[in-house]
Nucleic acid binder design. Structure first.
Length: 284
DNA sequence: CCCCAGTCCTGCGGGC
DNA sequence: TGCCCGCAGGACTGGG
């Protein structure tokens, strides 16, 4: 499930083979699955992107952005199982889109692969992506938000802090896996109301967010049991071996060694935490 | 404002 | 052994 570290890994993996190249072809792959969401349609996209050079490859929260020289930008949202690949798809059956790229005489391809097909590919004007007033309505990036801004945004919501961290309008880039990891390192109970956290607790979250996400990027993200997440060369990440709580229900807490990790459900998603290390305040 | 359930989608694994 | 069902959850929507 690509979250910030996985999407950052995708961007880093494809950048060198994509930036500065021209799109000589953009097409749907002949797979028999339902087509993924794409706006506008393939014809309109082709008319705006063919023969355009890809100037920049970058990450915007959990999206991959390809900025073209004519001020159009591809916004690729992998959601659960989408991948950006340069070679060797996990299975050819779920290849969705292909960009054929050219630079001088050399030619290579970039693919969007998506087993479940929940991912989306859209073309926007680059000017629409500059801030959170645009169509994406994203909050500040989890790796760029200042402590002051995080405090301000926490104060604005009474939702459980775990649920608030998943809200891309509040902070962009964190998903279900890293939300649990961040709160465990912060030693904060996931049900605590965001607007009741102390300044010290928000500072702990800010610090943990940076540490967890940066470390996960260094490990090239988490590849879970289903093996779906892979980097641009179809290789697994390794941060799953460093997980403190996610997917570790009933196993020992890596911090206190004594207690077992508990799984609960918040906003219809699994939350993992240590009832001992994260048992702070409000009776939790 | 907040919360909840439903929607999209496919593969996997538990239970019978 | 084989089939059915629930689960995985990112983003979004509609109703209370």
């Amino acid at each position: 499930m690509p979250e910030l570290p996985e999407v950052e890994t995708m961007v880093r993996g494809i950048r060198g083979s994509v930036e500065g190249r021209r799109i000589s072809e953009f097409r749907k792959c002949p797979c028999h699955c339902k087509p993924i969401t794409m706006t506008p349609g393939i014809k309109a996209i082709r008319s705006r992107v063919l023969n355009q050079k890809i100037v920049t490859v970058r990450r915007l929260a959990k999206r991959v952005i390809l900025d073209l020289e004519n001020e159009n930008s591809f916004v690729i949202e992998p959601r659960m199982t989408g991948l950006m690949l340069l070679s060797d798809p996990p299975s050819t059956g779920h290849l969705r889109l292909e960009w054929v790229l050219k630079k001088g005489r050399s030619q290579n391809s970039l693919w969007f692969w998506d087993r479940r097909g929940l991912g989306t590919v859209r073309l926007y004007r680059k000017s629409e992506l500059l801030n959170d007033l645009g169509p994406l309505k994203l909050g500040p990036d989890a790796l760029a938000v200042s402590l002051k801004e995080l405090k301000r945004r926490c104060a604005e919501t009474s939702r459980a802090v775990k649920v608030a961290l998943l809200d891309q309008k509040m902070i962009a880039g964190i998903g279900n896996l890293y939300a649990s990891e961040i709160l465990h390192l912060s030693q904060i109970h996931p049900e605590r109301k965001a607007n009741e956290l102390t300044a010290e607790e928000i500072q702990a979250i800010h610090h943990a967010m940076n540490r967890i996400l940066k470390t996960a990027i260094r490990y090239e993200g988490s590849t879970l049991g289903d093996g779906t997440y892979r980097n641009a060369l179809n290789q697994s990440g390794s941060y799953q071996n460093e997980h403190r709580v996610y997917g570790r229900e009933g196993k020992g807490c890596p911090s206190c060694k004594g207690a077992s990790i508990i799984r609960t459900v918040q906003a219809q998603r699994s939350t993992f935490f240590c009832p001992c290390c994260q048992a702070n305040k409000d009776g939790f």
